[in-house]
Amino acid sequence: MILTDRLRSIGAGVRLWFTPARVREEGTTPDYRFSLANERTFLAWLRTGLALVGGGFAVDQFLPRLHDVLRVTFTVVLLVGGALCAVRAVNHWVRCERAMRRGEDLPASRFPAVLAVAVGLLAAAMVVLVAVGWTR
């Protein structure tokens, strides 16, 4: 029951990305400066995603002596993380834009905390692996 509600809300959220006109029908247009700030936040998240994708490319290319399984695992985790970051960027941007139009509070999110912990763990694991030299 909770799961179906959750899936339905995710579906509604995804529909919102593709029907921006519906967002524009609601509420009043906020000050253009707030919209631009929201746009810059979107771009910052997009850059975070691009940086993770670039990190994936870098692990693949610059750690050739790392064990194959580990190298592929790190690369795939970084690439998937980058794609997730990008998708989250547009989702958060649409939801913030809608909240500003409605005059509501901006949506809270635990994504930044999760990402921070994940990147920290990944970096620590990478340091240990490269320092220990678990290579072929």
Binding site: L46, G49, L50, V53, T75, L79, V80, A83, A86, V87
Partner: peptide, 10 residues
């Protein structure tokens, strides 16, 4: 585009 870059990286 970003997701496509990730997919192509894979």
């Amino acid at each position: 585009c970003t997701c496509a870059l990730a997919a192509l990286g894979a």
